[in-house]
Amino acid sequence: MSIYHRINCFFLFSFLGYLLECAVLSYENKRPVFNRGFGHGPFCIIYGFGSVGATMLLSPFIDSPVRLYFASMVMATFMELVTAYMMIKLFGSFWWDYSRKPFNYKGIICLESSIAWGFLGIFYFRFLNGFVNQAAGMIPDNFQRITGMFFLIFYATDFVYTMRMQLRADCEEDESSLVGRLKVY
């Protein structure tokens, strides 16, 4: 399996995660939700990283559905917690809110989502991983590199643009909050 095949799988998982997030939030909010990624493209890369982490860390549990379920639950919940803390550190907030759900911790993680992560881990190993690898394998070898590089460049550009916009908005917010406190003599 080439590095470009893996990159294409990463972005396919990120796209499927984006679709999952949009579907779940559309259902919960009873209205369509389309903007679930960090940037402007249709990717939630935490799902790409989750697929890499699951393959690396959870493969020893694939023969035991119960152990796989709990290991998936713990790994994904931990990833959600770490991601939220990174976002708080970078931006002062995170992009989801579980505060209205029972058994939540600071709105960052909750029991309902942790339970779902366990089932998603089983689904990942029983169906999704093979499906995504097969789909990425349908990209002709001579286009694997082109599509992989396209996804990397697209996401990197989108990420840098979004970071700049977010930092600019934070700076403007900080400046506007200072206006009321300035003393003019």
Rank of each mutant, 00 (worst) to 15 (best):
F13C: 11
S14L: 14
S14H: 14
L16G: 08
L16S: 14
G17S: 10
L20M: 11
L25C: 08
E28I: 00
N29H: 15
F34D: 04
N35Y: 08
N35S: 12
R36M: 03
R36F: 02
F38P: 02
G39E: 11
G39N: 10
P42N: 12
P42H: 11
I45K: 07
F49T: 00
F49S: 04
V52W: 11
G53L: 13
L57T: 02
D63R: 12
V66E: 13
R67S: 10
L68M: 09
L68K: 08
Y69C: 04
F70I: 02
S72F: 04
A76L: 05
M86I: 13
M87N: 12
G92Y: 02
F94P: 00
R100W: 01
K101G: 01
F103T: 00
I108M: 05
C110N: 08
S113E: 09
W117R: 07
G121K: 09
I122V: 07
I122S: 05
N129F: 07
G130F: 06
F131P: 03
G137K: 10
G137A: 08
P140C: 08
P140H: 15
N142M: 07
N142E: 15
Q144E: 15
G148P: 01
M149E: 11
F150A: 13
F151W: 07
I153K: 13
I153W: 13
F154R: 02
Y155G: 07
A156S: 12
T157P: 01
D158C: 01
